[in-house]
Amino acid sequence: MVTNSPSTHLAHEDSGFLTARGLSRSFDGALVVDDVSFSIGRQEIFGLLGPNGAGKTTTIRMLSTVLAPDAGDVTIGGHSVLREADEVRKIIGVCPQELALYEELSARDNLVFFGRMAGLGRREAKDAAAENLGFVGLLDRASDAVRKFSGGMKRRVNIAVALMSRPQLLFLDEPTVGVDPQSRNHIFETILRLRDEGMTLLYTTHYMEEADRLCDNIGVMDHGRLIALDTPVGLKSAIGDPDEVTLEQVFLNLTGRSLRD
């Protein structure tokens, strides 16, 4: 699976593996991400929470080099996403919020294709595909067209694709949406195992208990701004006894109860 590459232990320990400084982005005049700064240490699971439309996906798109920020910069593994996008792309993996898959192709063909595009050889890509499909529990369905999969199975393929490039940093944008408790638990185990194998993860979700359980640190976004940044316990302590308070209460407390777009 994802192995701990030697470079994982090189410098930038202090400044964080990922550091975002003053990230901003607007669409059609509306400020969607507003001066966001944070950093993620190695082998950390960082949760990015926030109501619909808070700007989480837009932030991830900027962190993962596919959307240019209007202001600010990000370094990942010491490389700037603005000036060294090619270097950054070699060490990140992205599991987008959408199921970015080729429905007509089999699960294996999807993985092999993305692996080959990330630079793997034919043989290498095949092996990695089998490994990653096993990792998400889909090896027995490897030859079936993704079109025939259930929603939860597609989610797992979506994650497996992101693992094909053997990333050091993995972005997971709502990987558990629409997934049953069994699959979800499987995904949690996957995430924890990846972290144990040396990966750093940035994770978004609307399931608060999930974030509480998995994340080392949590950032809460609302209206494009990062309004809180702490450990789960730290966040809960701010409003009461961390053993009594739920992260959901913290979330509602921070972001209010009005509906979002």
């Binding site: 993962s64 090619d86 990140i92 992205v94 987008p96 959408e98 970015a100 993305f114 595009m117 990330a118």
Partner: peptide, 16 residues
């Protein structure tokens, strides 16, 4: 359609 389902953006983040 591939652009809309984000596979192209995914490729871009992948170094394509």
């Amino acid at each position: 359609r591939e652009r809309a389902n984000h596979t192209m953006e995914r490729l871009m983040a992948n170094g394509t």
